[in-house]
Design a protein around this nucleic acid. Structure first.
Lengths: 236, 236
DNA sequence: TAGTGGTCTAGACCACGGT
DNA sequence: CCGTGGTCTAGACCACTAG
């Protein structure tokens, strides 16, 4: 509780918005009310609201109040976040292939370097969706040495990145990506339950990690009809 | 003149950074010094510095000062760069529609807010390619007030963003994006010289700028067959 | 220890929206 | 008119950096 006051107030408001206590389109307590409620000054109350605004939870309306905004339901995926962190609600994941040793694929949007190629790769493949609606087919490769344990265990909370972070202190520090629009081939069409030849968004990613020369390669095929892939940047 | 104090101080500091008076790596005057220099309080000085930080001109270093940063430009197309900066070589651009007043379109991936909608928009449309190969159809909208001059003049070095920066001191500070794979309609197919129904990558962007409540809306249709859209992030 | 940025208080006046 | 958010003042105490 030695945390910053404005962060505390921010957290409280954010939770109440997410729980629907402050519904979409309604107004938050005014700045002066927040002051009385939490025993703080307007400067601090405003700072909490500034944060909420920056993250897209509210809009400030001069002379009226702070209104709760509808947050777009998109997949904020393209930076370094994994799917489960990006979507949060109602994510369903099915393993089509649990982690297994496999040779590297021949062609690749990004070429693994020699050292990586000289080792076997671990491969896994998942179908991910929102509820029953399949959204993306995800294929992943990475060099195996040191990660053999992953062939056995479950991912923590279903998150590959979270597992790497907690088990191996390995953090994602960046990524390179290539985006394409392709026609669904037979396999993709079947798994995403769309017509063969339907347009799918293909994202090839090379994740850069805190371990030098260790990368994770992902290839995503997304049905964007219902859930476009979303992305927000601020502050350069 | 009667403008907000923090904006004035911000402008002064920004100009001096851009002119090199405060060089990269050096420290700005401390907050207390700025107070004395401009006869303001620390709150106001800090607000000016907040803006500079948000736009990537400085970093604050606790216990040391506000250091002038080298502005990053390596974020690839999907963040804040325009096409011409991202591709560099052999870019051809053809105006299909020079900047012109036009009503806002009805449907939009991102909704302009009320104030923006209440004004007319300036619209322009370009076909961009590498050499003779058309790559992307680019449609752009933004609220008109104050930018009427753009209806007349040429863009500096063919870059819209560069023109906004130099003519209006307007910086791009972020963006929201939505990515979709679509089938080319008749117009897009014709312009990109691909078959009708061929998959195209659709990128809807809302650029956030240093002018509050002023956004630029872009809608891109890309043929990714030969040139996929690339993207690099580091250091998140 | 002196100076810096980070957080916070307790006020003030203004511009805007709705009554 | 009153209540709202937007700007600003004049202080305070803290945490961090460096000599």
């Amino acid at each position: 509780m030695t945390d910053k006051l404005y962060k505390q107030v921010y957290q409280i408001l954010k939770s109440r918005i997410q729980e629907g206590i402050y519904g979409i389109g309604t107004y938050l307590p005014s700045e002066n009310e927040l002051c009385k409620m939490h025993g703080i000054t307007r400067t601090t109350a405003r700072r909490a609201l500034d944060e909420l605004q920056k993250e897209g939870f509210i809009v400030r309306e001069h002379g009226k109040g702070s209104r709760v905004k509808e947050r777009r339901q998109t997949l904020g995926l393209l930076t370094v976040k994994g799917f489960s962190e990006a979507v949060r609600e109602n994510v369903r994941t099915v393993f089509l292939q649990r982690p297994t040793l496999r040779a590297w694929p021949e062609s690749f949007a990004f070429s693994p370097d020699k050292k990586e190629r000289s080792r076997y790769s671990i491969y896994f493949e998942r179908l991910r969706g929102v509820g029953d609606f399949p959204v993306m087919l995800e294929c992943n490769w990475f060099a195996s040495p040191g990660f053999e344990e992953l062939l056995q265990i479950e991912f923590l909370e279903g998150s590959f990145f979270k597992t790497l972070s907690k088990k191996y202190q390995l953090e994602i520090t960046g990524s390179e990506q290539e985006l394409r629009a392709l026609q669904a081939d037979e396999k993709v069409a079947h798994l995403l339950k769309i017509g063969q030849g339907a347009p799918v968004l293909n994202i090839s990613i090379r994740f850069i990690t805190s371990r030098t020369n260790f990368h994770i390669y992902s290839c995503l095929h997304c049905n964007t009809e219902k859930y476009p892939i979303g992305n927000i940047y601020h502050r350069l």
